[in-house]
Design a protein around this nucleic acid. Structure first.
Length: 749
DNA sequence: CGTGTCTGCCC
DNA sequence: ATTCTGC
DNA sequence: GCAGAATGGGCAGACACG
């Protein structure tokens, strides 16, 4: 038996483990396979086959080989180790997998029970590659095993323990891997405000998985429908291949660095280049690494772990690493410190080095709110009624503000006078709003130097002096915006002041912050205003104010305490504000009755059920069903199961002739029009893809719903009695009329 | 160079 | 964005 | 009630493709 042994400078991914690449023709590969066959395979293996697509680009590692002359002969002095393309026997994954195949893969990911597979890591000499792995960076597998352990529980305390132990291990053994590990666990590669993006989505990942496994894109797509997770699909596809040798294990550092490299790739052929990078990682992945690599790239780990848990574990780990006997109180305090610091500076790039240097307890001395770095914005809790609001705020003094329908903006002015503007999710929007930057000198009074204000950017019609809908704002350019040529003008509606002249105001009361805001800024029509507010107490007053807010094109109200628990500290209670949306008051707040005509296979926790549905209204003029929106929220888990069971009895092979839909908005499965659902939505919009009321409001575009959610089944209604296209068109026009009326009101006042 | 698809990010 | 669910 | 994970419409920007 020949044993391929890799020795001497084993290729490492750190210096590009994939050290070269050869284009091999099909013929070359047959030769290679034949030769490999001779080397590795004995009588216990049926076939060695190669999955290939016409000409295959083979990732190669340059190695030295003992006693493998035939292989050496193949390409002369350079020996090709076929990593990804050589698969064994009947495990070659066929195109157009039969369901049984999928089931088999599902039932037994590693295929050890598969009778015909004789080569595995225990029995195949070639798989026992013995090169020493000496790397400074911790193995990616260690991270993946941690993620796997977390995925196997739903208990948050257990999750916290597992992650804490992993972080402690890193702190003790491999400090430089902590930051990359935190990023990988979060599916991030940099702080959001740095604007570095992978530019990788499901489509590209499917391509990469296809390239590595040799399976067709449609086969992979079909498996995703069944397994509900591309990571799982990739893992089961890949585990059915047996590699000629075990590739050098991936390090956390390598994976993270490759991700950053991917993010930097732009321009022509960038997608291909990105796929290549992902492929080289996938080739080196083993076991569950495949699943998590894919999921991290997808941005959905789906293991019950996100930012808050990571912060908890990170804080706990640093405290325990220093003092293993720390009391629960000490740990709690440290975790609170870390969370609060993180909310002021949401940048692990800054916090993790500071944790190493100063520890948790002194962290806030070194990391604190800084103009130029976005802080996490306060969010609001949705409430269903004004009584609910009064219940929550009881006797505390509170205030109501208009909730403007625009884009959240945190406007920073640094000590040097420069301006930065951040989005709700801490993206840097400075380049999108050069006009706001120019307005700053006009809107500040003499006292304001450095500051951070919290505000809403709203599209504004300067001729009519009125607010424009969100859909108008969304058409605004985002890059290379030139002040001289702005199509969508905006006005800023400020509602909070978080920092002023070198001083943080986070812990002061809202009443004080609001006073300071009004003292230091001034209204300039069409450019800057304060969010309209009323310090009301009675339900009646609030009801009137809510009605007014809607008449003036707002979404409803924000309700905030003025004194007690009114500090701006998202860490303590991330949703200490309340919002009351107009849905409960007017407009489309009443719901709409729509027909289910299609569905989409669920992913993640919805696997096995439909995860979303395609809805239509009824056009009684043309006697057809016109698509209006998809729906994916509002149903309980049991609702979903019942919908799936019921609708599976009404599947049709293709759309009815009387279904009107766009080609790029087709469901996975079509249904007969048999059931009507009550759907609630916030607004109606002109849609590029949906067909409801086409020709009634816009000659070529239909109407859709904003924020649709399922309310209940309407068994009392037949599909022909669903909401009609003309009713939808009327609702749209009423919405527009309300807007116009409010403008007139303003003009009259 | 125009159109379609994909992605990320607003809500 | 909205909504549901285990802890 | 938190934290997480399902899912919605629709836009600009970046590429791919013909």
């Amino acid at each position: 038996m020949n044993i391929i042994e890799i020795n001497k400078t084993p290729p490492t991914l750190d210096n590009e483990m994939i050290s070269g690449r050869l284009s091999l023709t099909l013929k070359d590969l047959s030769v290679a396979v034949a030769d490999v066959d001779g080397v590795v395979v004995e009588d216990d293996v049926d076939v060695v086959a190669v999955e290939l697509a016409d000409c295959v680009v083979v990732d190669v590692a340059v190695v030295a080989v003992e006693d493998a002359g035939t292989v050496v002969a193949l390409v002369g002095a350079v020996v090709v180790v076929l990593v990804a393309v050589v698969v064994v026997g009947t495990t070659v994954v066929e195109e157009n997998n039969k369901p049984e195949d999928i089931k088999r893969l599902n039932d037994n990911n590693d295929l050890k029970a598969e009778k015909k597979i004789k080569i595995d890591e225990d029995s195949a000499p070639a798989a026992k590659m013995s090169f020493s792995v000496s790397s400074d960076s911790m193995q990616f597998m260690t991270l993946c095993e941690t993620l796997e352990a977390i995925e196997n529980t739903t208990k948050r305390l257990v999750i916290n323990d597992i992650l804490t132990n992993f972080f402690i291990k890193l702190i003790n053994e491999s400090q430089k891997d902590l930051l990359p590990s935190v990023y990988l666990s979060l599916n991030q590669i940099a702080p959001t405000f740095e604007g570095i993006e992978l530019g990788i989505g499901e489509t590209v990942l499917v391509k990469a998985v296809s390239a590595v496994t040799g399976r067709s894109i449609s086969a992979i797509r079909n498996d995703v429908k069944e397994l509900g997770d591309l990571g799982k699909v990739a893992q089961s596809s890949k585990s059915s291949q047996k590699m000629m040798y075990t590739p050098k294990s991936l390090s956390i550092h390598t994976v993270f660095k490759t991700f950053r490299d991917i993010a930097l790739i732009t321009g022509k052929d960038s997608v291909t280049k990105k796929v290549d990078k992902i492929r080289s990682l996938l080739v080196a992945c083993q076991g569950c690494e495949v699943k998590y690599l894919i999921r991290i790239l997808e941005g959905k780990l789906r293991i019950g772990l996100a930012e808050r848990s990571i912060l908890t574990s990170l804080g706990t780990a640093f405290i325990k690493a220093k003092n293993p006997k720390a009391s629960p109180e000490e740990i709690d305090e440290g975790v609170e410190t870390l969370k609060s610091v993180f909310n002021e500076i949401p940048s692990y790039d800054q916090i993790i080095p500071a944790l190493f240097d100063y520890g948790v307890n002194k962290l806030s001395e070194h990391c604190h709110m800084t103009p130029g770095i976005p802080l996490k914005p306060m969010l609001a809790h949705p409430t269903k009624s004004l009584t609910e609001v009064l219940d929550r705020f009881e006797g505390k003094p509170f205030t109501c503000e208009y909730k403007y329908d625009g884009e959240r903006a945190q406007v920073h002015r640094l000590a040097d006078g420069s301006i930065k503007i951040f989005s709700r999710n801490s993206e840097d929007m400075t380049d999108k709003y050069p006009d706001i930057m120019e307005h700053i000198p006009e809107i500040i009074t003499d006292g304001a130097q450095s500051f951070v204000i919290d505000a809403e950017v709203v599209a504004f019609d300067r001729l009519k002096n009125s607010i424009l809908p969100f859909q108008v704002l969304s058409t605004r350019k985002r890059k290379d915006v030139n002040t001289a040529n702005i199509q969508v003008q905006v006005s800023l509606y400020a509602f909070d002041l978080l920092f002023l002249n070198g001083k943080s105001l986070l812990t002061t009361t809202f009443r004080e912050r609001r006073d300071l805001l009004h003292q230091n800024f001034r209204v300039v029509e069409g450019k800057f205003a304060f969010a309209k507010y009323m310090d009301a107490q009675t339900t009646e007053d609030i009801q009137y104010f809510l009605d007014d807010s809607v008449k003036e094109n707002c979404e409803g109200l924000m309700v905030k305490t003025l004194v007690e628990e009114s500090s701006y500290e998202p860490s303590k209670r991330s949703r200490n504000w309340l919002k009351v949306k107009k849905d409960y008051v007017s407009g489309i707040g009443d719901s709409v009755d729509l027909v289910v005509i299609g569905a989409y296979h669920g992913k993640g926790k919805r696997v096995g059920n439909y995860g979303g549905f395609l809805l239509a209204c009824y056009d009684d003029q043309n006697e057809e069903y016109q698509t209006i929106c998809k729906i994916g929220t509002g149903f309980s888990d049991s609702d979903l199961g019942e919908h799936t069971t019921f609708l599976n009895n009404h599947i049709i092979p293709g759309p009815k002739s009387y279904y009107s839909y766009a080609d790029n908005a087709k469901p996975d499965v079509w249904f007969d029009a048999v059931q009507v659902w009550e759907i609630k939505a916030a607004d109606l919009s002109i849609s590029p893809v949906y067909r409801a009321g086409v020709g009634l409001v816009d000659s070529s575009k239909g109407i859709s719903l904003r924020f649709p959610r399922f309310i209940r089944i309407r068994n009392d209604k037949s599909p022909e009695n669903a909401t009609t296209s003309s009713q939808i068109a009327n609702l749209y026009q009423m919405q527009a009329v309300i807007n116009n009326n409010s403008k007139n009101d303003d003009d009259l006042e």
